[in-house]
């Protein structure tokens, strides 16, 4: 049931994106990637929590904003410092995503 609503939301989002004629400016490409990974991570973690029946909006929202904020800040700060944190942030988010896949 939760999968249905998520997939429906995803499809609706894609539809909205196709309708809205906008693309992310090239200068913000890195930030949008981080944001996408953060949202994907949040959705997957939310689904897992929902299945465990301990979904909490404050944990969901707080976790999402903390992670996304940290990732975006790291990328931004890395650009200011001249150190590219972007790959590291992406790797961390991807690891989180992969670890959410139940292999057992």
């Amino acid at each position: 049931m939760i999968w249905v609503s998520s997939l429906f939301g995803l499809a609706f989002g894609v539809f909205l994106g196709l309708v809205i004629p906008w693309q992310i400016p090239l200068a913000y490409g890195k930030y949008s990637v981080v944001l996408i990974l953060a949202v994907a991570d949040a959705v997957l973690s939310g689904i897992q929590a929902y299945k465990r029946e301990d979904f909490s909006l404050s944990r969901f929202g707080g976790g999402f904003f903390a992670l996304a904020g940290l990732g975006l800040f790291l990328v931004w700060f890395g650009e200011r410092l001249g150190v590219d944190f972007f790959p590291g942030v992406v790797v961390v988010f991807c690891l989180r995503l992969f670890w959410r896949v139940p292999l057992r």
């Binding site: 998520s6 995803l10 989002g13 992310i24 996408i36 959705v43 929902y50 999402f64």
Partner: peptide, 19 residues
């Protein structure tokens, strides 16, 4: 929670298309 997750999915879909 379902609604929240659905909304987050909507955001995810839109961002994917823009990207």
């Amino acid at each position: 929670s379902q609604v929240v997750l659905g909304l987050a999915s909507v955001l995810l879909g839109m961002l994917l298309v823009f990207q």
